[in-house]
Design a protein around this nucleic acid. Structure first.
Length: 514
RNA sequence: GCCGCGUUGGUCAAGGGGUUAAGACGCCUCCCUUUCACGGAGGAAUCACGGGUUCGAAUCCCGUACGUGGUACCA
């Protein structure tokens, strides 16, 4: 058995969205599971849709996910080049070969002529034109024209394409690793263009030629290719490569959460969640669409979520590292139906990953987030403690800001309103005495702070619960966060006393103002 | 329109002739927490419909409906 080789073959037409990353992921998982190669091939045969920078963006996106190609345009192997635009000569050669063998033909119809014909049929209420066995003899091509006429047109350099000649009523069967035995007839497909007038191949030719030349053993791609699969299978046969044909698997689509249609690049803004791994700025619009990374997702959570959207190991385990996915993945367990994307579940995966990640792993990203907000981290030991203390309450990395900034800077606002309604002189006196007691502390320890706090409450005959909330608001600015004495302990004596004092004066001002 | 693929709670899903039809997200209730989370215990909610086959169908077959993809010199 030859070495497993799979490829991910995106076209550089813009950002790489969820579905694309998942296709890459499944290819990668399968390759690594079987000790094979994962090849990145850039399908840039449509010059009209080519977007500068998209190729690098794709490589960067995959790298962030931990999906590293063994070969690709950025990492050349034995099958270079890896951009189809640089492989132009191969395709022409094979297209000509197909013509010689009688499996393909030259067609001289201009796009405008075909379009006109389509419009005409449409206006007559007829079904869409299929350039195939029904009409090919009434069109302008090397089948309908004499050899002389064809030769003349060819010699004069008349623009032409090469089309595959698909026989009607032919049954094509192949095995799909997800769907099982497929038997389709050729009536559903037309005489696909193989080589365009500009000399570039279409997907149909390029995918077959490149998969053959690059010794691809398994071809996994989106379900949208299923209807044209018979053409590809036939091409493998016509080129005489049938015994080398890769095993196929057509992956289910990722659908929009609100129903209707597959998730597309444009859905990101409309639906309020990212569709890209990394942020993408359209070169024309200059509009930035944020990616999962920008929103505070961990790559581990992102690929975990993606893997589970369309695949399931059959056990109750939901949390998988990339290594565990490699170990457990099986293409046969990929579903044959699409799944709607659920952003809430995606966030859940991230929350789980933040909780289970070692604080040390999170620190660099968290530090970046805090520093972007001009928070100065002067005490590394304290920073580590804070990260571990608050990570359970963070769903996104960006949540670390709200959950931890007040350890390093004064609260932005003090929510005095939440204290004021129940505020009175005896509570004020309590805090004054608390300050005085805390001033005498030598060892600033959370347990001791709590002990003293409670002792004073009993002297003042106030329930601790009535004072804990004001205390929290003094330190945090609002009603959230970890245990209040843990916060005080990390804040240190000077800062804690300063914050109590500060809020006390705010409260007296408010009272006076009433 | 035609052709292909699909259909288990709102969402992701296990289950592939006999199950009280797993589990997860989300939602609700309670416990924990003198905050917010985390954690724990519960709850509501499902086999698209109609025919077969069978002692027995979510599971197999056929229709219908619905969804989705294709129907480009795009991939």
């Amino acid at each position: 058995m030859s070495k497993v080789r799979v490829r991910f073959a995106p076209s550089p037409t813009g950002g790489l969205h969820l579905g694309g990353v998942r296709t890459a992921l499944y290819n990668y998982l399968f390759a690594k599971k079987h000790g094979g190669d994962f090849v990145l091939r850039i399908e840039d045969t449509d010059q009209t849709r080519y977007i500068e920078g998209a190729e690098q963006y794709i490589i960067d996106s995959l790298a962030w996910c931990g999906i590293l190609p063994d070969e690709g345009p950025h990492k050349e192997g034995d099958y270079a080049p890896y951009r189809q635009s640089e492989r132009k000569n191969f395709y022409k050669e094979y297209a000509e070969e197909l013509v010689q063998k009688g499996y393909a033909y030259y067609a001289f119809d201009t796009p405008e002529e075909i379009e006109t014909l389509r419009e005409k049929l449409k206006s007559q209420g007829k079904s869409n034109l299929q350039y195939g066995h029904q009409v090919r003899l009434s069109m302008r091509n090397s089948l309908s024209l004499s050899t002389e006429e064809t030769g003349l047109l060819l010699d004069s350099g008349f623009p032409h394409v090469i089309r595959v000649k698909i026989n009607s009523d032919e049954f094509v069967s192949f095995n799909d690793m997800i769907r099982g035995n497929m038997q389709m007839d050729t009536n559903g497909v037309d005489d696909k263009v193989l080589l365009k007038a500009d000399g570039m191949p279409t997907y149909h030719l390029a995918v077959v030629v490149d998969d053959y030349l690059m010794k691809i053993t398994h071809a996994f791609r989106g379900e949208e290719w299923l209807p044209s699969a018979p053409v590809h299978v036939l091409l493998w046969k016509y080129l005489g490569w049938e015994s080398h044909m890769p095993k196929w698997a057509h992956l289910p689509l990722i659908l929009k959460p609100d129903g209707n249609g597959k998730l597309s690049k444009r859905d990101g803004d409309r639906l309020g969640f990212p569709v890209f791994a990394l942020g993408w700025t359209g070169p024309a619009s200059k509009h930035l669409q944020k990616g999962f990374k920008d929103l505070g997702f961990l790559p581990e959570a992102f690929i975990n979520m993606l893997a589970m959207l369309g695949w399931n190991p059959g056990t109750e385990q939901e949390l998988f590292s990339l290594e565990e996915l490699v170990e457990n993945f099986s293409i046969e367990r990929v579903h044959s139906h699409g799944a709607k994307f659920d952003f809430e579940k995606a966030k859940w995966f991230n929350h789980e990953w933040i909780k289970k990640s070692d604080g040390a792993l999170l620190e660099p990203e968290v530090k970046k987030i805090l520093q972007q907000k001009n928070i100065i981290i002067d005490d590394e030991k304290k920073f580590k403690q804070v990260v571990n203390l608050v990570k359970d309450r963070c769903t996104l990395l960006s949540d670390f800001w709200e959950q931890s900034y007040f350890f390093f800077a004064s609260p932005l606002n003090i929510d005095t309103d939440s204290i004021l309604s129940k505020w009175n002189d005896s509570k004020n006196l309590f805090f004054i005495e608390l300050i005085n007691s805390y001033k005498l502390f030598n060892a600033w320890d959370g347990t001791e702070l709590e002990k003293t706090f409670k002792e004073i409450t009993s002297v003042h005959r106030i329930k601790p619960g009535e004072l804990l909330l004001p205390f929290r608001v003094m330190l945090v600015g609002a009603k959230y966060g970890p245990g209040v004495f843990e916060i005080a302990s990390l804040l240190g004596k000077e800062e804690t006393l300063k914050r109590i004092q500060h809020t006390l004066s705010l409260l007296s001002e408010s009272k006076a103002g009433c």
